[in-house]
Simulated assay, not measured.
Amino acid sequence: MIYTLATQALHILPPEDAHTLTVLLLKAGLGPVSRLSTPELAIEVAFDGGILRFPNCIGLAAGFDKNADVPVAMTRAGFGFAECGTVTPLPQGGNPKPRLFRLTEDQAVINRMGFNNKGLEVFSRHLEPVNARRKKPVMGLNIGANKDAADRMADYVTGLKRLWGLGSYFTINISSPNTPGLRALQGKSHLDDLLGQIAETRAALVKVSGVNYPIFLKIAPDLDDSEIEDTVASTLAHKLDGLIVSNTTLSRDGLISAHASESGGMSGAPLFELSTRALRVAYAASGGKLVLIGAGGVSSGAQAYAKIRAGASLVQLYSALVYKGPRLADEVRRDLVSCLKADGFRSVSEAVGAG
Score class of each variant (00 low, 15 high):
residue 188 K to W: 03
residue 189 S to F: 10
residue 190 H to Y: 09
residue 191 L to S: 11
residue 197 Q to H: 10
residue 197 Q to E: 13
residue 197 Q to Y: 01
residue 198 I to N: 03
residue 199 A to N: 05
residue 203 A to D: 11
residue 204 A to L: 12
residue 207 K to H: 13
residue 208 V to W: 00
residue 208 V to R: 06
residue 209 S to D: 01
residue 210 G to W: 02
residue 211 V to E: 03
residue 212 N to W: 01
residue 212 N to L: 00
residue 214 P to C: 03
residue 215 I to L: 07
residue 217 L to N: 08
residue 217 L to D: 09
residue 218 K to Q: 08
residue 221 P to E: 04
residue 222 D to A: 10
residue 223 L to S: 04
residue 225 D to Q: 08
residue 229 E to L: 08
residue 229 E to K: 14
residue 230 D to I: 05
residue 230 D to G: 07
residue 230 D to W: 07
residue 231 T to K: 14
residue 233 A to R: 14
residue 234 S to N: 09
residue 236 L to A: 11
residue 239 K to I: 03
residue 239 K to M: 04
residue 239 K to S: 15
residue 239 K to L: 07
residue 240 L to I: 09
residue 241 D to C: 11
residue 241 D to A: 08
residue 245 V to S: 15
residue 245 V to R: 11
residue 246 S to T: 15
residue 249 T to A: 05
residue 251 S to I: 03
residue 252 R to I: 03
residue 252 R to H: 02
residue 253 D to S: 15
residue 254 G to Y: 10
residue 254 G to K: 13
residue 255 L to H: 01
residue 257 S to M: 03
residue 257 S to N: 03
residue 258 A to L: 15
residue 260 A to K: 14
residue 261 S to V: 10
residue 261 S to R: 11
residue 261 S to Y: 02
residue 262 E to S: 06
residue 262 E to R: 14
residue 263 S to A: 15
residue 268 G to Q: 05
residue 270 P to S: 06
residue 273 E to T: 14
residue 273 E to S: 14
residue 275 S to G: 04
residue 275 S to M: 04
residue 276 T to R: 11
residue 278 A to Q: 12
residue 280 R to G: 15
residue 282 A to L: 08
residue 284 A to R: 15
residue 284 A to H: 13
residue 284 A to I: 07
residue 285 A to G: 14
residue 285 A to P: 15
